[in-house]
Design a protein around this nucleic acid. Structure first.
Lengths: 222, 222
DNA sequence: ATGTGGCATCTTGTATACAGTCTCCTAACA
DNA sequence: TGTTAGGAGACTGTATACAAGATGCCACAT
């Protein structure tokens, strides 16, 4: 098949590939996903494609209308902005719980991800930077030991990555500094500070987003 | 087929039916889900069953191990308790945003759901009570106008329903009173109060849960 | 010119078939 | 008695086939 590398199941490979294409914009918002064509393009049968579509629909990347077919979901500016409200609540909680449950292994893992991200930035590997950014946020969620939190954060963070890639809203070195300070607060076990820094980080991301889409928030008092 | 009623697609019917069986405990934790047998039992082919399994796996109800098969997820007491942390964050946010965006239609809808729940309680229709409880919480999420919030809340609330059904932790009339006061705070547009009441409601639910599983929380300072 | 009915085509939904892998039992051997 | 090789059965992964609904175009009528 066209998909490279060692794989477990075609279904998983297809899911990853479709998700990647959506995140990078290779598959545009609203684009129709015809099972036959996707299957042929990926060199698989329709079955793995169909199962992938269900998964990505559950994650909110694809909209399915029975009998009519699947399309890449559309992402309005409002929907993009709304996501930040959810992120602040969830990632604030995640940072707090991660700080509460701090361990050297966790701190190491977070710092290592930040190192990798810095390297990727210096090498100009943009797509990898975005992936590592998401991985860092997810690692915070996983280090809480709260399995459902981690489970729900994964699609949320991927969606956040999508929001940024779709609006061409990039964040500069500020983001890295914010990650680092969050990491240290977690390592220090300072729950309040960790939550505050996570919330501030997401709020800063929202400002970048709003600037990119050229709108003002209607609720500046958040 | 065995599944009654008018349906759009078998896939959706199967998903609903499997979810229902998991929520009611008809399908027990850890129980193996053999595609062939499920398909035969529901009178459909394996394809709709497989697609359903992917959806329910994404929702966290089913665990899938490639080449080994699918099982109903296991829910430890710890995982049950952890869910309440997420719920407090998310439902607190939902209540706040619902209050901010209040409308007569929203208030009507919430009150109507509470009425139905009261009727179901009086008629002793337990399963319906649980469904209406979930529906109320979801309606709060939907009335925020934040589509992603509503999307992520749905599986979360279904999981919460599962947690309660699995631990035989029922809540008495307190729950109804708490819903009512939350409803009024939202209708009044009092953001702080709405959030506080939602958080308090979930916290009360957690106490019921902990009492049912006979454990003490390790973090009474939340 | 315009609206409408019907047919051809495309696409999804569902079922069936086949292949590969995992499990478990059995039996032979140390 | 314990251990391991082998093989039968069971189940998942993937592909293909068929059924049915949706779309769009064209001819025909007005």
């Amino acid at each position: 098949m066209t998909l490279g590398g060692a794989h477990q199941t075609l279904r998983d490979e297809v899911t990853k590939e479709l998700r990647r294409r959506i995140l990078t914009g290779e598959l545009a918002q609203g684009e129709r996903l015809v099972e036959d064509r996707l299957a042929a393009a990926l060199g698989v049968s329709r079955n793995p494609v169909r199962e992938s579509i269900r998964v990505l629909a559950a994650e909110g990347f694809i909209q399915v209308v029975p009998r009519l077919g699947a399309t890449v979901a559309r992402l309005s500016a409002e929907e993009g902005e709304e996501l930040f409200d959810v992120r602040m609540a969830i990632e604030g909680l995640a940072a707090r719980l991660a700080a509460r449950k701090r361990s050297p292994a966790t701190a190491d893992r977070l710092r290592r991800l930040l190192d990798q991200a810095r390297e990727a930035v210096e090498a100009g590997r943009l797509e990898e930077v975005a992936d590592l950014n998401t991985a860092f946020h997810l690692a915070v969620g996983e280090s809480t030991g709260n399995s459902y939190l981690a489970l729900m954060m994964k699609p949320m963070l991927q969606r956040a990555q999508w929001v940024f890639s779709q609006t061409a809203a990039a964040r500069g070195p500020h983001s890295w500094t914010e990650h680092l300070s969050l990491c240290e607060a977690i390592a220090a076990g300072d729950e309040d500070e960790a939550q505050a820094r996570a919330v501030a980080h997401v709020a800063a991301a929202r400002r970048s987003f709003l600037q990119a889409v050229g709108r003002r928030t209607k609720h500046p008092n958040d």
